[in-house]
Design a protein around this nucleic acid. Structure first.
Length: 649
DNA sequence: ATAGCCTTGAGG
DNA sequence: CCTCAAGGCTAT
């Protein structure tokens, strides 16, 4: 990837980037004096992008911290006067760090007259846009009682019914879900047979979702004390993630006595970086230690609560990761006692042990203050009326569900081993669990170009966010320097998205399934000017089908797209090459063992990867040229596309 | 496999 | 010493 000769960056963007840099340096590098460049560049928050950066990205983070300042100009001063403590810096989420990292490089290059890569610029914007978009969506959702109610019911009731009657069908009487709102937290009555399913704060109002068992059918009645409860509104979605951070950070001192952010059971202590219950602690330990691999039989968005937590270990584990439980906290050597040293090993204010005692953990990832697992951002934009949404696409959803459990049919069955590396990667699939975004109902037939592109762009941004989270949790990826992580992600994001679309279409010949609700045939694509791309994607899909690529192979292919030591500018390509070799060996071992009748399968799979890169390049170009100049709704993603375009020209 | 309880042991 | 977060054990 070459670098654009001139600064192909708009002044607005440059300003935005320096803004990011400035604020993040104030956060994370207090001890060092500001470099002259950044001092000079310190801008006023007067552009749209800057306000994105400030409001969308910084505010939610700082809002959780004791030092929270306003997101306007004064915040800088506040932070200046009151340096953040290390533990608080640790709470800063991955996106912010990534953005700050790139911003720092780009700004330095710009100031010194160098040539920043335009994709660096774009990545900053994408990340910031993602952050702000998700936060906005989240806030909106939390403040709408109707959506809260429908989610709670959709997610909870069926499970309780199964539990209560010990009978798997859906059409028996359900316990009542009661939504209280406009109440102060704690003032809502909670009779003995009620279970507080969730509690939300929004717009100064409190909503409490209570599940009422008239006859006490639940095997267990959970009573929750009247202190601030973390949000446990919905599955492994946005609420849970944000609420958890609140519980762990702003409420950490009263963590004991609260409810587990994974399953809402009673917190027993601080485990693997999060206040959780005993059972989730044990579950996380077993899962990691025994390198278990789970697959969700639904869409990877199962509700996890104290009643149904046993039902879908895949979603439970994904939620563990989402709320911030740390893989590094599981000791590879299984030594007992003592103290841990990973970032976040202590809930509050305790100094971190020195690294020298960590000799046994040389392989562990978090050694360099790269604490980003605590994803503060929501993982999904929930469809408010998700029940209605699938009604016209039930069939497609069914097909997709089938495809998502595709891998289960193949491996293990014959007692053949699955390399640990592959099962580790597989464990993270729930992090990419399928989502959709709200869309206007009339898009099916008369495919207006504009709405379709808007939809596509939004979907892409959503998936990009998840991609970052997924990559961050990949085994050994955390051991790569943050700069290199960013470069790798920049290099492959579109390839990964393209492969994902191919995979989700594996069971629908001639139709490309863009999401759970949207699919495109070749004819439709041609009408939209996407014929070439879709044709090529369908071709890849057909090859995946022909080769009988299973889910383990699919996830390995994805990581192979990511782990490419040839990306320009990598600090440590050696380490990445090593990782790549390990992974390709694991994949080869797996494929040759499981598909002896297809000796060329391994090679053929690898041969698809370059074509994927080609397709994603064409797709980006097509998207860019097809976009009307007024597409501001996703302006920042547009910038990314423009950046890539300039780079590759 | 789960989850509650027990044991360990470095750091304070 | 005590704390508390890690791993271990074991009835279910």
């Amino acid at each position: 990837m070459s670098v654009s000769g001139d600064l192909g960056i708009s002044p607005v963007l440059l300003q935005a980037i320096s803004q990011t840099l400035t604020s993040s340096e104030l956060r994370s590098e207090k001890k060092k004096p500001d470099t002259p460049q950044t001092m000079e560049k310190k801008p006023q928050p007067n552009s749209k992008v800057v306000s994105h950066l400030l409001q969308g990205m910084n505010e939610p983070v700082s809002g959780l911290l004791p030092l929270a300042g306003s997101s306007e100009g004064g915040a800088e001063l506040d932070r200046d006067e009151t340096p953040m403590k290390q533990e608080e810096i640790d709470m800063v989420d991955l996106q912010e760090r990534l953005a700050a990292q790139i911003a720092s490089r780009v700004t330095a290059a710009a100031v010194s007259g160098g040539s920043p890569s335009t994709s660096d610029v774009s990545m900053v914007n994408v990340l910031t846009a993602l952050a702000s978009q998700h936060i906005k969506a989240n806030i909106k959702q939390e403040s709408t009682p109707v959506s809260v109610a429908s989610q709670a019911m959709a997610g909870t009731s069926a499970d309780v019914v199964v539990r209560a009657s010990d009978n798997g069908t859906d059409d028996r009487p359900q316990p009542q879900i009661i939504i209280y709102y406009n109440n102060e937290a704690g003032s809502v009555p909670s009779p003995a047979n009620d279970v507080i399913v969730g509690e939300l704060d929004g717009d100064g109002q409190n909503y409490r979702v209570v599940m009422h068992h008239g006859d006490g059918v639940g095997t267990r009645v959970q009573t929750v004390s009247d202190q601030n409860l973390p949000v446990v509104g919905e599955g492994m979605g946005a609420d849970a993630a944000v609420g958890t951070v609140m519980a762990a950070d702003s409420n950490s001192s009263e963590g004991i006595g609260g409810v587990c952010p994974v399953c809402t059971d009673k917190i027993s202590g601080y485990h693997y970086g999060v206040f959780t219950c005993e059972s989730c602690k044990g579950f996380f330990k077993r899962t990691v230690q025994n390198k278990k691999s789970f697959m969700c039989h639904k869409q990877g968005d199962c509700e996890v609560n104290v009643y149904n937590r046993k039902k879908c270990p895949a979603c439970r584990f994904a939620k563990c990761l989402t709320v911030g439980m740390r893989l590094e906290a599981i000791r590879p050597d299984r030594t007992r006692g003592g103290r841990s040293s990973y970032d976040g090993c202590s809930p509050h204010g305790k100094p971190r042990p020195t690294p020298l005692q960590r000799k046994k953990r040389a392989g562990a990832s978090a050694s360099d203050g790269e604490d980003q697992t605590r994803a503060a951002l929501p993982g999904r934009i929930e469809i408010v009326n998700s029940e209605d949404d699938g009604k016209t696409h039930r069939q497609l959803v069914a097909i997709l569900n089938h495809s998502s459990t595709h891998g289960q049919q193949v491996p293990d069955g014959e007692g053949q081993r699955v390399p640990e590396l592959l099962t580790d990667i597989m464990n993270l699939e729930p992090l990419l669990a399928d989502d959709d975004i709200p869309q206007e109902a009339t898009m099916d037939e008369s495919l207006g170009q504009q709405p379709f592109y808007d939809y596509l762009m939004q979907l892409t941004e959503l998936r990009l966010y998840k991609l970052v989270r997924w990559a961050r949790n990949l085994p050994q990826f955390g051991a790569i320097s943050t700069d290199d992580q960013i470069l790798l992600l920049q290099n492959c994001w579109s390839d990964l998205l393209a492969l994902g679309v191919c995979w989700r279409s594996i069971n629908t010949p001639a139709v490309l399934n863009i999401s759970t609700t949207r699919s495109v045939s070749l004819d439709q694509a041609e009408a939209l000017g996407f014929g070439d791309v879709v044709g090529r994607l369908l071709n890849i899909t057909q090859n995946l089908r022909r080769l009988r690529v299973d889910q383990y192979e699919y996830v390995a292919m994805k990581v192979l797209l990511l782990i490419t030591p040839d990306v320009k500018g990598l600090k440590d390509p050696g380490k990445i090459r090593e990782y790549q070799e390990k992974l390709s060996e694991a994949l080869m071992e797996y494929t040759t063992a499981h598909y002896m009748q297809l000796p060329s399968k391994f090679g053929e799979m690898l041969l698809r990867l370059p074509e994927l890169a080609r397709i994603s390049f064409i797709a980006k170009e097509t998207l860019l040229t097809a976009l009307p100049p007024t597409a501001q709704s996703c302006g920042l993603l547009v910038e990314l596309l423009k950046g890539e375009n300039a780079v590759k020209d």
